[in-house]
């Protein structure tokens, strides 16, 4: 099982970073979300894998490590907050400038053409 989890986390990391390297805001945000899955899983596995050992007192003799779970629980909620903030920033950027590029260097002087292109797509 450990090998499968390691492969999954590695794949999610790679997919997340690849998407984060794209040039438009939406794939970048999707990439960051996938990357945050990978990070949450990574934190979770620092408690090692266990089955049927939920940290509920009285249900077992040995319990899974509850601390990484508590950390990851809040991390999941905060990732949502972060995604929401960058999403509104992406929307704002698109609505203000008419394009959704992430690299300012590529976007220089791109306003109206980008606008036109954006309209075609929209």
């Amino acid at each position: 099982m450990e090998a499968l989890v390691a492969i999954a986390i590695g794949t999610l990391t790679a997919v997340g970073i690849y998407l984060a390297l794209r040039m438009r805001t939406f794939p970048v945000i999707v990439g960051l979300t996938v990357l945050s899955y990978a990070v949450n899983l990574f934190l979770f596995t620092s408690g090692r894998l266990t089955q049927n050992r939920a940290p509920i007192i009285g249900t077992s003799d040995v319990y899974a490590d509850p601390l990484p779970q508590a950390l990851v629980l809040t991390a999941i909620v905060i990732s949502f907050g972060m995604t929401a903030v960058i999403m509104i920033m992406a929307i704002g950027g698109f609505l203000e400038s008419g394009h959704d590029r992430v690299n300012m260097a590529d976007a220089a002087g791109d306003d109206e053409t980008g606008d036109a292109a954006g309209e075609e797509r929209a």
């Binding site: 450990e2 090998a3 989890v5 390691a6 492969i7 986390i9 590695g10 794949t11 999610l12 990391t13 790679a14 997919v15 997340g16 970073i17 690849y18 390297l21 794209r22 990978a38 990574f42 596995t45 620092s46 090692r48 894998l49």
Partner: peptide
């Protein structure tokens, strides 16, 4: 190139997780 960067990072994290969990 991007895939290479992502692949290196993914492989590294995967390896790290594997060594940690074992």
């Amino acid at each position: 190139f991007d895939a290479g960067v992502a692949g290196i990072a993914g492989a590294g994290i995967g390896w790290l997780v594997w060594t940690m969990m074992t």
